[in-house]
Structure formats: C-alpha cells, structure tokens
Design a protein around this nucleic acid. Structure first.
Lengths: 237, 237
DNA sequence: CGTAACTTTGAACATCCTCAATGTGAGTGG
DNA sequence: CCACTCACATTGAGGATGTTCAAAGTTACG
C-alpha cells in the first residue's frame, strides 16, 4: 500500500536495457547506437519507493509494465493520491528541478527512466526531445483531468463506479482483460484517490455488489455486470 | 453565470490587434511583420459563449484580461466546471480537433485567439510553435492538478477555503489586490467547480465569516483575515 | 497455525443535499 | 423616483450520505 511501509527503495531496482534517441517511444526496440543512452529500463518490486516529493528531480519516468501511484502528503499529515499510472504513462518532473509528488510502485513494475540531461542538453535530437516532453505533458494533463472529473462526482458510489470504469478502460488499452477488472491498489489508496475514506469505499463496493451492478469475485477482482447503470449512478442509489 | 442564459456568442466580440510569430508571449507588443498573423486579440462581454464542447476546434486561446470558465455538461444533465482561467492562462484544444470542454466569459474578457494553422502548418517558426504548445499544455496541466487537489478535500469548507486562497494567489500573480479578494463567479459556478451545491457554498461562506476567518464585504468580495486557519480548516470546524 | 495487513461491518454522530422560503441588489418601465 | 422583476444569495428543516471509532472477518505468508 502506498506510503505506509515502504520496504524497498528504487536502489533495489534491476537495471537493464538502455534506451536510445530514436527509440524514445520506449517499449520494445533497442537499436545499436553511438550516442549516450537516453535512459534505462528498470524493474522494481511492489512497494518500491521511486522518489519522494521535493527530492531533486533527476529523471523522467514512463511505465512499461505494472501500476505506479503518485501522491502528496499534506502539512496536516493527510495523504492525497494524485494518480495511478499504467503502461505508456509518463510521470515525473518536466519543468521543475524538484519532484512535485512522491511515486511508489503499487505492483511489481517495469519503467523507463529518462535521464534529465535528455531534455536539457543539446546532444539529443530536438525532435526526440520535444516529442517526449510533449507526450509526457499530455500524459500528465490527461491524468489530472480525469482525476478531477472523478472527484467532482457528488456521491462516493458514483466516484467509485467511475473509478472501476477507468480501471477497465486502462486495462483494455494495454491489451489486458477489461472485464473481470483487476484492482491492484488497496482500499486506502482508492480512498485517498477519490477523496473519501477506506470504509466508505468498502461500503460502496458492497452496495454496488448487492445491487447487482458489479460482482466482487475477490477484493481485488470485480466483474462489471451492468455497464449502463455503472456509468450513471444516481443520487439515491 | 455559466451556461444558464448565454446572451452573447463570440461573434459579438470585437476584433483588434493581430499577433505575430515573435510576439507569441502575447500581452503587449505588436511589431511590424511580413508573415501571416498567429492570431488576434478579441474582447467579449461577460456571459459570452466562447465555444461549446464537441465543436470543431479552430483556435487556441489565451486570457489577457478577465475571467473565463471552462465546463462540461454530463449526460445526466449535471454540469462540471473544469477550470477558471485568468490572465496568461491558455485554454482550448491542443491535440484534439474538437473542443473537450465548453468555455464562457465570466467577466468582460480580452483574449488572444491563436489560429489552428499556427500549430499545424510549417510556415510558422518551429520555436514559436513548440514554445506556445508547451506553454499551453503546461498551463492546462497546472489548472487540472490544482483543481484535483482542491476537490480532494474532505469537507466543503476546506475546499472553499482553498478556493479563496487560489483566487487570492491568482489575483496577486496578475498584479491585482490579493486581499480583499474579488469573486467574479456565482455560487453556482463555485459549487460546480468544487463538486458541491450552491447552498453548501453559501453556508460555508457564512461559517467562515462568523468564525472570523474571513470577512464578507459583499457576496463577491471577501477579506481574508486568518490565513493560517484558512489554509488548514480542520474537520469539525 | 499465527501474525500482520487489509477488508468489511456496525453504531453514533457530523456533514451535506434537497426542497422550500426568504432576503438582496441591479436593472427596467411606469 | 418608485414599484416590479429577475437572478442570485442566504437560511431553515428533514432526510440521505459520509466519517469516526471500534470490532470482527479475511487472506497471504512465514
């Protein structure tokens, strides 16, 4: 679970393939190159602490496999999960030299770590440079906009239903099963993402389950039954 | 108020200064140029409908003066205000050929309208092109991230307090008075932005007022008194 | 099996939404 | 200038929803 007992730091990660300028799209190809690598592919176990908010920002990341969570700890000690990131999502700083959030691996993860010099130095082709920054910004904008839309819902059930649809859609995008939806994060993480409490999240799962809109196979796998109702949970549900 | 009775369309706007490639920063300068203008400066009255969601996206905008609101009307008829935009903020589509939101002038406004061709055609310098797109994406990311943070608050009073601080900070940024905070939008707009109801917004104003954290001079101008408490409204306030 | 982390449920209380009524201020026409 | 109107803001009451604190159930893993 995010932030409670972080058993690993990213130093435990295994470094693997290097990434070169013309393969910035990331997943798969690794041509022979003379120039310095743009970044590395790394793997890390669930619970791994990738970076902390306010740390100097040395790298930009992109998820290849697994789920990453970004979050913020407020002055009063409460926590806000600012996003869940999946295959192809970027995360990290782009115009800042310190991290604005913390990041943690929710499942075992594979990520690309792009070196900071990649988007600040001149020996990298402008095209790759601007392309990757545009993609990263766009990715972060989309994450934040979807998050705000979810949070804008009036009831917790509506937000949770929207969240399940989000999980399903993202799973489909990366070619995984979209209907028995896998839920890799805890109720605490979901609560801090949706602006509510784990108890409320749990009760809404129960309510959606009992009313036949979803079927909870296990706490971390639900089958979506009634997509129509799921996408429009009314007030007195 | 956003979306209820739109008295004006943007066709009522007055076209003025043209914008050229090397003055993309927007506000102020207007050099003599040979190339096609990047865009125009337009003014429009409060209530003006700038564009509607799903409309073909012909322009990117930037606020020079006034307050603009962007919003989304959901299938069930409810409305979500996705952002309030002030001087120097960009709004509009960047990677889409249809508008993702609607936009409306909340006060009398002056905006720059950048033509779509500016960021799709080759006769505009790459530098200006990429620069303006980066700035616009960054502006939208910031708007969405701040919005999500506000919406993540547990109580309406906390969200409203955060919103007042946001208004004050943005006013200071553009050189206007930061302490008697001007509130250009209605309680309905604030409610749809904060994911609550106008009645709740009104009650929270009253509560913050009575407890001496703010002083309501008029419904659309409040003086922030206790900044410390305002930025950390506890649960049983 | 036994522990630890996570999930679910219960009960009491706080907050919020809904519906309804009243208050307020700007603009309009007599 | 004075009603009158209209949109917006505020307040009240009752019911729905959500939070808190506490306890019991579940699962994974040593």
């Amino acid at each position: 679970m995010l932030t409670m007992h972080t058993k690993f730091s990213i130093n435990a990660a295994v470094r693997a393939t290097e990434i070169y300028p013309d393969s910035f799209s990331g997943v798969g190809d690794q041509p022979e190159r003379h120039s310095r690598p743009l970044g590395h592919i790394e793997t890390m176990p669930a619970g791994c602490n990738i970076y902390m908010q306010d740390d100097p920002a040395l790298s930009l990341f992109r998820v290849i496999d697994g789920t990453v969570g970004t979050f913020l700890v407020m002055e009063n000690g409460s926590r806000r999960v600012t996003g869940f990131l999946y295959e192809s999502d970027y995360f990290g700083p782009i115009f800042s030299d310190r991290h604005r959030f913390s990041a943690e691996a929710i499942t075992d993860c594979t990520v690309v770590r792009y070196n900071r010099q990649m988007w600040t130095s001149r020996d990298v082709p402008d095209f790759a440079q601007s392309q990757i920054i545009l993609e990263a910004l766009r990715s972060e904008r989309k994450t934040a906009e979807e998050h705000a839309l979810l949070l804008g819902g009036l009831t917790t059930c509506a937000k949770l239903a929207g969240f399940l649809l989000h999980l399903s859609r993202r799973a489909a995008q990366r070619g995984e099963t979209e209907n028995p939806v896998a839920i890799p994060m805890t109720r605490y993480d979901i609560a801090d993402f949706l602006g509510t409490t784990p108890e409320s999240v749990s009760r809404c799962f129960t309510k959606l389950n009992r009313s036949g809109v979803i079927r909870m196979d296990t706490p971390d796998s639900v089958t979506l039954i009634d997509w129509r109702r799921l996408s429009n949970i009314p007030r007195g549900f």
